[in-house]
Amino acid sequence: MIDRTDKPTAPILQVRDLKRFFSVSDGLLSGTSGELRAVDGVTFDIKAGETLGLVGESGCGKSTLGRVIARLMPATSGEVMFEDRDILNLDHRTLLALRADIQSVFQDPFASLNPRMTAFALIQEPLIIHKVGTRETRRAKVHDLLRTVGLRPEFADRYPHEFSGGQRQRIGIARALALEPKLLILDEPVSALDVSIQAQIINLLAELQDRLNLTYLFISHDLGVIQHVADRVAVMYMGQIVELADNEEFYANPRHPYSMALLSALPLPDPHIARDRILLHGDLPDLANLPDGCRFQSRCAHVSARCRKSPEPPLAAVSPGHLVRCWNLADIHPGADTD
């Protein structure tokens, strides 16, 4: 068992009321007609050395959030502090330095690697862009990185199509590690992989985190994977965090009705567990046309009159470190203490 108690607790990343809207149009000629609120007021911290698991279904804004934090996409408003830098307001030179500290690994290792570059060129590219080292030291560094992610240096001259999915993801990870980042944004890093390969990559990421003292924002739709990797869990729904808690607390006492439905819907690999699935009815509401009040009202089993009126429920603490965005917690969990 890895001892996780000795990790420092200072936040490495602080996100405050972050928003990212996209303008949408109804058709070719009607011009801009509204805003799609992909990320709509997200606030959280990540402590140095921890893994924050970000779960949610497709379209909830989790990938957009990751991209805004990695500065792959501008924010609409809000504040993101990485260590002591306000990363939404950086000039070109300091932004380049920031990119060395925050790197991303993406879901599809086939789509995210240039098929015309060899593994060597792919992993070396960030070093060239950031003018790190000489030709010789870069070569040594790339070979080092290949070994670090469990690939043989002889593979350096192969092209992406010559690797399996798991190996390609290892190249993606090596490339992200080239500049010795502090924070990795892992966006569904194992979702495209077979179960047996998924386990290899999860193990590799855990080992790298310990060895290189990395901090992870681990984005996934898979609650089983998140339970294994995350120190804390944030659940996103329609652009907002609806619940945030420590791993054990979240899986033992999910409080938000959406989290409860998500957990109940997760098929467990044990045929002897008979569970009552909470079936959500209806599909997701339109992000460009949100209802008044709580965004989950149309699918919630515990909806009351208050949920349909403005304002939206705030993300409030139910116990230290456990935040939930719901008006009806006292009715849904009558025995639980809320403070």
Partner: peptide, 20 residues
């Protein structure tokens, strides 16, 4: 054994080595 689950947290998963 490869499937991550509640009690596997903090331990290495027993991955199957190699590829199909």
């Amino acid at each position: 054994d490869s499937i991550p689950h509640g009690t596997s947290r903090g331990k290495a998963l027993k991955a199957i080595p190699g590829i199909v």
